[in-house]
Structure formats: structure tokens, C-alpha cells
């Protein structure tokens, strides 16, 4: 069995700072991490491999330094890492990104064996779109299973997979045919620590590095800014509300402050006091 896991190197969002004057992201010194949602996909893939045999290839598209994330994935136990990097990919939106990744997955198939399953995380923490997974599925004509909370059964001989999928108001139990694209829901497993053997292997491993051309992409007009139907016209910080907050500044806060706040709240929302009193009687 061959599984491809798409991961993305993202800035650690907890540490992103915005320059107060220019409204630009201050990237210097912001550590990068593997998109946390992707770790659930990677762990799910590793578990399937451990149970059914086969290999796990991790794939990322990004600048050369994205190699760090791939190496990290190897320390967790992935077997092979592919870095797709080219200046043609700069400025890709989700349509252009899924085009490039789909092409790379096709090339991975030709080179290392056709994948049975492609995994992605639910979404990234920097883009937050959840669109690249479905985009890859459609481009690669893979059946699409998003928000998967559990892989219930995999029957390689019969080429069938059964999963539980988070839906609105409940969980769907779905069965479909391989090959599939699965986007894995968060909190569904816990990433392993990785062994010393994997760590040593990861340090020495050769990262397969492909340009657009290497990945078999002939039409670079479908990549990067030019291949992106969406255009970002403006990046800005929201303005402060014009009616400034009514500030209560007392240190330390006392019982009177609490009473004053309750009074301010009841004065601020018509009818809420009566509703609360009514509710309180039923509690």
C-alpha cells in the first residue's frame, strides 16, 4: 500500500505579530511548524501502514526551507519525503495549489507507485480554507472523504474503505472505493514520538526535491499568481469601534465594581434583566 500525506509548513500562529504602523506581518524570528491539523493526517497514515504494510510519502509545496517540516515528518516515521519548490508557485491560491499538488501526486504515482490513499489535514492554521483537499481530490479524480473522525475498516484486497465522517448534527458512516482522498479531523489521534532509528534516518535522508518541471507540470500558467482566480486586493487591520468602550478601571476590583458592572450590563441590554430573573426562577 502507498499513502501520500500532504503537509504544509506554517508560521506558528501563536507567535505572529503585526507591525503596529505598517500593518505588515513581522516574520522575523517567527518559528515555523508543521500545520498542526496535518499531524492527525500523518498519524492516521502511519497507523494504516503499520497495520497493513506499505510506505508513507510526505509531500509539501513551499520554499526550500519547508524541507525542515519534511524532515520532521520523517522523524515521526514517514518513509519518504518530496519537496515541491519553484518560484512559479509563488502567490498560489487554493486552486493553483491543488493543481500543483495534484500534478506532484501523479508524478509520485509514476515514480514510486500509485497511491491508494492521499491524506490532508482538515485545513491549515494560516489559510484556514479547507479547500486544498477537495481541490486535489477533484483534480486527481479521487473519491473525497472530508472531516473523517475514524477509519473503521480498510480492505486492501477488495479495495474498499469504511470511515466515520463528521457531518452536521451527527456522524456519517461511509463506505467507498480506493483510491480516496481523506481530510482528517483534529483530535482523532495523537502523534507518536518517533523512534531513535527514525530520527537518525531522517537526519541522513535525502529529500526528493522537484521543480515544477520535475513534477511534470508543463503549464506553469496554471501555477502561482497567474494560475489563481482569486486576487487579494487589500490587507488591513480592522478599525477600532467608533464608540469607545465604557471603561471601568479599578485595581483591585471590589464587590462594588461587580455590582456596577451588573448594573451597566442590565442598563445596556433592554429586557435582559427580566429574562434572566425569569430564567433564574426555573434554574
Amino acid at each position: 500500500m502507498h499513502i501520500v500525506v500532504c503537509i504544509k509548513q506554517v508560521p506558528d500562529s501563536a507567535q505572529i505579530r503585526v507591525h503596529p504602523v505598517t500593518n505588515t506581518i513581522m516574520r522575523q524570528g517567527v518559528p515555523t511548524i508543521i500545520n498542526p491539523y496535518d499531524l492527525f493526517a500523518l498519524e492516521a497514515a502511519l497507523r494504516l501502514r503499520d497495520e497493513h504494510g506499505g510506505t508513507v510519502t510526505v509531500l509539501t509545496m513551499g520554499p526550500p526551507m519547508a524541507e525542515d517540516s519534511l524532515r520532521k515528518a520523517l522523524t515521526f516515521g514517514a518513509d519518504r519525503a518530496v519537496l515541491l519548490t519553484d518560484r512559479f508557485f509563488a502567490g498560489s491560491d487554493t486552486l493553483a495549489t491543488s493543481f500543483a499538488l495534484a500534478q506532484a501526486i501523479a508524478k509520485i504515482g509514476e515514480t514510486f507507485g500509485t497511491p491508494d490513499i492521499v491524506f490532508t489535514g482538515k485545513q491549515t492554521i494560516d489559510g484556514d480554507t479547507a479547500q486544498v483537499g477537495p481541490g486535489i481530490a477533484k483534480r486527481q479524480k479521487l473519491l473525497q472523504l472530508t472531516y473523517v473522525s475514524k477509519i473503521a475498516e480498510l480492505d486492501l484486497a477488495a479495495r474498499r474503505i469504511k470511515v466515520e465522517r463528521r457531518a452536521e448534527g451527527g456522524v456519517q458512516v461511509l463506505e467507498t472505493r480506493l483510491p480516496v482522498l481523506i481530510t482528517m479531523l483534529e483530535g482523532t489521534n495523537e502523534m507518536r514520538r518517533g523512534t531513535m532509528v527514525d530520527a537518525l534516518r531522517a537526519a541522513r535522508a535525502e529529500i526528493v526535491t522537484w521543480s515544477a518541471k520535475d513534477a511534470g507540470i508543463e503549464d506553469v500558467l496554471k501555477c502561482g499568481l497567474r494560475g489563481s482566480p482569486t486576487v487579494v486586493k487589500r490587507v488591513f487591520a480592522p478599525a477600532a469601534r467608533s464608540d469607545k468602550a465604557q471603561m471601568i478601571e479599578i485595581q483591585p476590583a471590589t464587590r462594588d465594581t461587580a455590582d456596577a458592572l451588573v448594573a451597566a450590563i442590565f442598563g445596556g441590554i433592554a429586557g435582559i434583566e427580566g429574562d434572566l430573573v425569569e430564567l433564574h426562577q426555573t434554574l
Binding site: P238, A240, R241, D243, K244, A245, Q246, M247, I248, E249, I250, Q251, P252, A253, T254, R255, T257, A258, D259, L261, V262, A264, I265, F266, G268, L276, V277, H280, Q281
Partner: peptide, 30 residues
């Protein structure tokens, strides 16, 4: 958060939340 809050309270929430809970309960108790 004070840029978009309507009422702002500059204080330690850990100490203030119990006081606020009590103040609501006091005011709402029949």
C-alpha cells in the same frame, strides 16, 4: 479587545469572575 468591547474592565479576571458571579446571583435571587 477594548477596541471593540462596549464595556471594558481593567482588572484580573481570576479575582473578578467570582465577584461577578456572586453579584449576578445576588441581583437575580428572588
Amino acid at each position: 479587545i477594548f477596541d471593540f468591547a462596549h464595556v471594558g474592565l481593567v482588572t484580573d479576571a481570576v479575582r473578578f469572575l467570582p465577584a461577578l458571579t456572586e453579584a449576578f446571583s445576588r441581583r437575580l435571587s428572588p
